[in-house]
């Protein structure tokens, strides 16, 4: 098993090179393929759990795998390391943003294009996780209900969860018993 420092270094590299999202794939590549610290099965279980918990999946997965590898200190180290390079860079950009002239046409165009790229990347992610998230009719129903409540009715996520999770557990149980 790696030391806390080794975990920190591995996740710092991931945090500095995983551009534009897709963090889970970068973590899998480093921890499973490169370092052999986890088996593919162990990784998949961590990923599922990271998606179940609140918070950004990327840093949740880092914290979870870090603590699995090197205890609580490893979890804290992994979470900080994975977000530190990007946090410093975006802080720098935020400082520059206020100094930019308001009507820089090409920059507005570039940010609009990056925004379109971000939407495209997000759509690709939705398509790729849809098969595992929408396995049953109940799951599809829950997803549509959550989508409608969130996107059309603008209900707070907290309320959506408080109502839909019990409903989902109840519907899921009915299906399992049928």
């Amino acid at each position: 098993m790696p030391s806390t420092l080794e975990v920190f270094k591995a996740f710092l590299t991931i945090g500095a090179t995983a551009f534009g999202g897709g963090g889970s794939a970068h973590i899998q590549n480093a921890i499973v393929t490169k370092h052999h610290w986890l088996t593919p099965d162990e990784f998949l279980e961590s990923l599922t759990l990271a998606q179940t918990l609140p918070g950004p999946i990327f840093s949740n997965l880092a914290a979870q795998i870090g603590s699995k590898l090197a205890g609580i200190g490893g979890g804290v180290a992994a979470c900080i390391a994975v977000s530190l390079p990007g946090a410093l860079l975006i802080l720098l950009l935020a400082g520059l943003y206020s100094k930019l002239p308001a009507n820089t046409k090409w920059l507005e165009g570039a940010l609009t294009g990056i925004g379109a790229g971000a939407v495209g990347v997000s759509l690709a992610m939705l398509l790729s996780i849809a098969p595992s998230a929408l396995k049953t009719r109940v799951a599809l129903l829950l997803a549509i209900a959550a989508f409608g409540a969130n996107a059309a009715l603008h209900i707070s996520v907290l309320w959506i969860l408080l109502v839909l999770v019990p409903v989902g557990v109840w519907l899921g149980r009915k299906v399992n018993h049928a």
Partner: peptide, 13 residues
């Protein structure tokens, strides 16, 4: 099992 599809729906929104 309930959280995964709800999370997917919220992500789509």
């Amino acid at each position: 099992g309930a959280l995964l599809p709800i999370g997917f729906g919220l992500s789509t929104g």
